[in-house]
Design a protein around this nucleic acid. Structure first.
Length: 440
RNA sequence: GCCUUGGUGGUGUAGGGGCUAUCAUGUGGGCCUGUCGAGCCCGCGACUCGGGUUCAAAUCCCGGCCAAGGCGCCA
């Protein structure tokens, strides 16, 4: 076995091969997608990151040795094929490669654990067990090309708006933020946890005078949920800005989502077509606002019981989502069901300057104006039975000059669901972590 | 965690007390010079585990494990 490539280097991706380069010598590297041996002529379809290209070997034009090499191939083996591009009306895309050299770089075992050509569908569990093979499919890799473009666009948008990227720790000491369950871990002689959110760190960065920051990173939630829209490890796009309120950061979020929608349509037309998904049907911003008070009325008018002060049940989310075209803000939430750091309305303290961004019935983001006054913040913690002693390092930042600020966090994997039209969040994560799956 | 449904070749399925367990795809071999879900011929390959009922269980019953969908949980 020869482990080295030697002089072999790819000259073209499949997408670079067109009738215009007819006559040129090319070197392809990729996977054997299909082999169709008709006896006197062999067709081998090679797949790379960009797509498919046909290698055609007619027995009259190609050496017997090459024909033998091609017959030795197995599906999904990795090969390097040198040859000449040739315009051919009968070939897919009007062009094919006449091979002059075939080198097997790695032979795939048979049978395969699933079929990457999708002649036979596989269930999500089978697919995730062999995710590396599943990801070879164009309609799966398209999701991650769209997601990559999404993250690139988000970073560009933040940069254009003078928002600084930060990185905060995911190994944390505090289990006292309340709300979600945390994953405990051993940290030398201490107990520690995996971070559920960069929230407290983002706010400390406001105290540090960074004005506008964002972070894209993993968050961990130890909830035993088992749905199409929850994972125990997810990517959060978090933003926090000083000298701004909820309405200001809603505008930033609205702008970000709209920019991402536009960018996806512009840069990922091929992927959207592979997914057969019409992103143009989703309205861009500015997104409408629905006040919580009104949402309760809407839900009740659909015949679903909901008391003022409750969070929306799944049924309520669906009923409300059915009344909306696409994205919308749900605003003015009851203070009691929002975190300790939100700012209540002065004239009506039972509701607060907190919002969610919804896409139909799916929560994409939540945010708020944050309480920056130390004494009030501590009082709000105590109202929720949280012990301020557990928040020492965080609270310190509020004692020595914390500016008014606001921010939000977006579930990146959920946003990717909207951009790709998939209904299971596992589809938007390379190697998802859910209640039952910790591998691969 | 709860509810519902399910677990049959590598993959996806049909069958639902008794014949050699169906079909597709795959895979191994053969034929074939324009395939593009190639075609044709031959072969290969399976009843989730444990217990029970029965002359007889893939099939019915009980339990476990696993999965899919729904709900709950989710500052």
């Amino acid at each position: 076995m020869d482990y080295l490539l030697g002089d072999l280097r790819r000259t073209h991706y499949s997408s670079d091969i067109s009738p215009e380069i007819s006559g040129e010598e090319v070197l392809l590297m990729g996977w054997v997608h299909e082999i169709r041996d008709l006896g006197g002529i062999i067709f081998v379809i090679i797949r790379d990151r960009d797509g498919l290209i046909q290698v055609t070997a007619p027995s009259k034009k190609v050496d017997a040795e090459i024909l033998a090499d091609l017959r030795a191939l197995r599906k999904e083996s990795v090969v390097a094929i040198k040859g000449t591009a040739q315009e051919a009306g009968k070939a897919p895309n009007g062009v094919e490669i006449i091979p002059s050299k075939v080198k097997i770089l790695n032979l795939a075992n048979q049978p395969l654990p699933m079929d990457p050509t999708e002649k036979v569908k596989a269930e999500i569990d089978t697919r995730l067990n062999s995710r590396f093979l599943d990801l070879r499919k164009a309609n799966v890799s398209a999701i991650f090309k769209i997601k990559a473009n999404m993250l690139k666009t988000v970073r560009q948008y933040f940069d254009d708006n003078d928002i600084i990227e930060i990185n905060t720790p995911k190994l944390v000491a505090s289990a006292t933020e309340g709300g979600t369950e945390l994953f405990p871990i051993t940290y030398f002689e201490k107990e520690a946890f995996l971070g559920q959110s960069p929230q407290l760190y983002k706010q400390m960065m406001m105290g540090a005078g960074f004005d506008k920051v964002f972070e894209i990173g993993q968050i961990f939630r130890a909830e035993e949920h088992d749905t199409l829209r929850h994972l125990n490890e997810a990517i959060s796009i978090d933003m926090e800005a000083s000298f701004k309120d909820d309405k200001d950061v809603m505008n930033i979020l609205d702008g970000m989502i709209t920019t991402v929608l536009q960018s996806t349509k512009e840069n990922c037309a091929k992927e959207l077509e592979i997914l057969d998904y019409d992103l143009a049907a989703i309205p861009e911003g500015p997104f409408p606002e629905v006040k919580y008070d009104d949402a309760v009325d809407i839900v009740n008018s659909k015949g679903i019981d909901m008391e003022w002060g409750e969070d929306l049940s799944r049924e309520a989310e669906k009923a409300l989502g059915d009344t909306q075209e696409g994205f919308y803000f749900l605003t003015d939430w009851p203070t009691a069901i929002k975190p300790f750091y939100v700012v209540p309305y002065e004239d009506r303290p039972e509701i607060s300057h907190a919002f969610d961004l919804m896409y139909k019935n799916l929560e994409i983001s939540s945010g708020s104006t944050r309480m920056h006054d130390y004494d009030t913040l501590v009082a709000q913690m105590e109202q929720r039975n949280l012990n301020p002693d557990g928040f020492g390092a965080y609270l310190q930042a509020f004692k020595y000059g914390m500016p008014p600020h606001a921010g939000w966090g977006v579930g990146a994997d959920r946003l990717a669901m909207v951009l790709t039209g998939v209904e299971n969040i596992r589809e938007t994560v390379l190697f998802p972590r859910d209640r039952h799956r910790l591998t691969p």
